[in-house]
Design a protein around this nucleic acid. Structure first.
Lengths: 203, 203
DNA sequence: ACCTTTGTTGACCATTTGGTCAAACCATAT
DNA sequence: ATATGGTTTGACCAAATGGTCAACAAAGGT
């Protein structure tokens, strides 16, 4: 399956860790080598260059991300339960793989997205699904692009910026952790309610 | 007022620009000097070191940010209008000063926040204000920390990650721009509605 | 005119860092 | 044992980069 040798996996794990913390420019090949418990020369034996290693991590993250985001099987499950489950899984994923450095690198070099435009239509399924429900009168007529962006923002940003939120809310580690455990359900509540009642008072 | 000489201002503008795009590690003193149209030696004449320059930018951004976020004058204005105006102003601010690199640096070195903990209680006014309204029965009993985080996430993330949203929505530049122009009002609608009706069905 | 203070810069330096390479190491087959 | 092919690494290199400095220019006061 994974098609990767043991040392390659170890290196990729180390590289992800170092890149996520330091970004491309701040990452050091020596640090990646140390983290993978090999010499810098060995690191270059497995991966030609820093650029090469970065591309592997970037591609892997984007692929996983796109795959998760475009997962939306059209089973018969209740749409509310489906949405809630999706939000919780999405949130868990974001805690695992930090998108911060990915976003940073994309901002620095937008071409990184161009190369993947072909295989990425993640919004399609999600939005099409709810537009269908909308047509059937099951949910309110709200702009689904807005809902889509709301969902991403509400799930991603609190993780990206958790440090500042912890500071500004003044919660201690334990309370904040508890808060974040309940958080995805609050997001689900909000989005479900919005889909059922719209974004504002109907006049 | 500004207490800064002309060349200092020019350098700080240049530095902000370069740091925002490249982060601390990726920023080059030469590039900042070029952007400010002076020599690298002159740059060091005005600002001892890269670290020093970074601190200036970081502090300035954090100060502006905290000041904006903690602005919440207790005038008699309708709370809905007040919230809507705040969201629009917040959104405009975030378009001007990119928080992406700030968040990255904080993640890399959380101590950057510790030094400023004293002068920062930005949540206080906002949350206290709405908790007071809540006590008076003007808004629904929802967790105000959640509302606070929702507001920040909804305003910040679409700007941070605008490139990916533009790609995944498939909107062209013009349509996306239009979409983002209407966006803050949608956020305001949602939050106002949530405060008036709660986050989910009352049972 | 001369001096002092402030600003400006090319040339230079020390360190860091991505990347290379030849030599050594190790397993396995012959 | 010897050869072979993959793996590992210390030593090394060239380029990039933050920072310094002496020399020079500009401005203003006397």
């Amino acid at each position: 399956m994974s098609n990767l040798t043991e040392p390659e996996k170890k290196i990729l794990d180390a590289a992800r860790k170092v890149f996520e913390i330091n970004g491309y420019a701040g990452a050091r090949m020596q640090e990646i080598a140390d983290e993978a418990e090999i010499s810098k020369a060995s690191l270059h034996y497995y991966f030609r260059s820093k650029e090469n290693l970065f591309e592997r991590i970037f591609d892997e993250t984007m692929t996983d991300f796109m795959q998760l985001v475009s997962t939306w099987n059209d089973d018969s499950e209740d749409w509310e339960a489906k949405l809630r489950r999706f939000i919780c899984e999405f949130f868990s994923f974001l805690k695992t793989k930090s998108l911060l450095f990915i976003i940073g690198e994309i901002n620095r070099n937008p071409d990184l997205l161009l190369s993947r435009r072909k295989k990425s239509k993640p919004k399609a399924k999600f939005i099409e699904y709810f537009e269908r429900l909308q047509a059937n009168g099951k949910v309110e007529p709200v702009n689904m692009y807005v809902i889509y962006i709301f969902m991403h923002s509400l799930c991603s940003y609190p993780i990206l910026n958790s440090r500042m939120f912890q500071m500004t809310t003044g919660l201690n580690n334990h309370d904040f952790e508890q808060f974040m455990k309940e958080y995805p359900d609050q997001v689900a509540d909000l989005l479900i309610f919005s889909l059922k009642r719209g974004l504002k008072e109907t006049r």
